[in-house]
């Protein structure tokens, strides 16, 4: 990335809704070239937006996406590994199929995108990767064993990749949102959300703008000495 963020090429996973859609919209407004992906089509309409319909756990499809990016743009500056799924259930009632899906999407796909993005970023000796964790990790929330475990893995990935990618000028950090009104928590009982929010220092639900504020800090040109960090929202 040279100069302002407006010249950046940003890849965001999970842009069909929620935080991913919000971030894509805002970075398009900022003048970035945004590449997004999701299983379904998106409503985003901009000449600076390119969408790929794919399953982020499909290695062959993801490699094809990165080959397309490399051929068209030569590199990318920023990866926001936003796509994720949750499983909120008691462990004794959690099928292994769910465990597998949560880890495939949250951990394996995050790793796959980090790996392929870093291959493109290394050429410019510049890159910013932002992964997504959750306050469910430090809170050790009951009913979220698999979700929290998968995001714990994302935090470890973030810290280790930060060291491995440092030689290539790539920083790797993670943002940990509190509950935000998105599809991810739509099936969680409201009293459960209230209980969770009451454990934060600042007792309110988060917003997509709160998340973007942290992402903005991580991807800033001047944040080149910030890597391997996890920032939770809400005072956890």
């Amino acid at each position: 990335m040279s100069g302002s963020i407006s010249e950046s090429i940003v890849l965001i996973t999970g842009t069909s809704r929620g935080i991913g859609e919000y971030l894509a919209t805002r970075y398009l407004e900022a003048g970035c070239r945004v590449i997004g992906c999701s299983r379904s089509k998106v409503s985003l309409d901009s000449k600076n937006y390119t969408h790929f319909c794919l399953d982020i756990t499909d290695e062959a499809a993801v490699k094809t996406l990165f080959t397309s990016i490399r051929k068209q743009y030569k590199h990318i500056d920023i990866l926001v590994n936003n796509a994720g799924i949750a499983s909120l259930n008691h462990s004794l009632l959690t099928p292994m199929d769910t465990v597998s899906k949560v880890f495939s999407t949250n951990v394996f796909a995050s790793f796959l995108f980090c790996r392929e993005a870093a291959k493109l970023m290394r050429k410019n000796k510049f890159g910013r990767i932002v992964n997504f964790t959750t306050v469910a990790v430090p809170f050790n929330l009951e009913g979220e064993a698999i979700y929290a475990a998968s995001k714990s893995a994302v935090e470890s990935l973030t810290k280790v990749l930060a060291r491995e990618f440092a030689d290539f000028g790539i920083t790797v950090n993670a943002v940990g949102p509190t509950p935000i009104d998105t599809n991810l928590i739509k099936n969680v009982p409201s009293e459960k959300i209230s209980e969770l929010v009451s454990r934060q220092a600042i007792k309110r639900k988060g917003t997509a703008a709160d998340v973007k504020n942290v992402v903005d800090f991580f991807i800033n040109d001047t944040s080149d000495f910030i890597t391997g960090q996890v920032v939770y929202l809400g005072g956890v």
């Binding site: 490699k63 080959t67 490399r70 051929k71 291959k119 290394r122 030689d167 290539f168």
Partner: peptide
């Protein structure tokens, strides 16, 4: 780092110039 860069660059050349993934 050189070794990583070398292997990745060889992969890219195979793909770009010989259509081998």
């Amino acid at each position: 780092v050189d070794l990583v860069n070398l292997l990745l660059a060889v992969e890219e050349q195979l793909e770009d110039e010989h259509d081998i993934s």
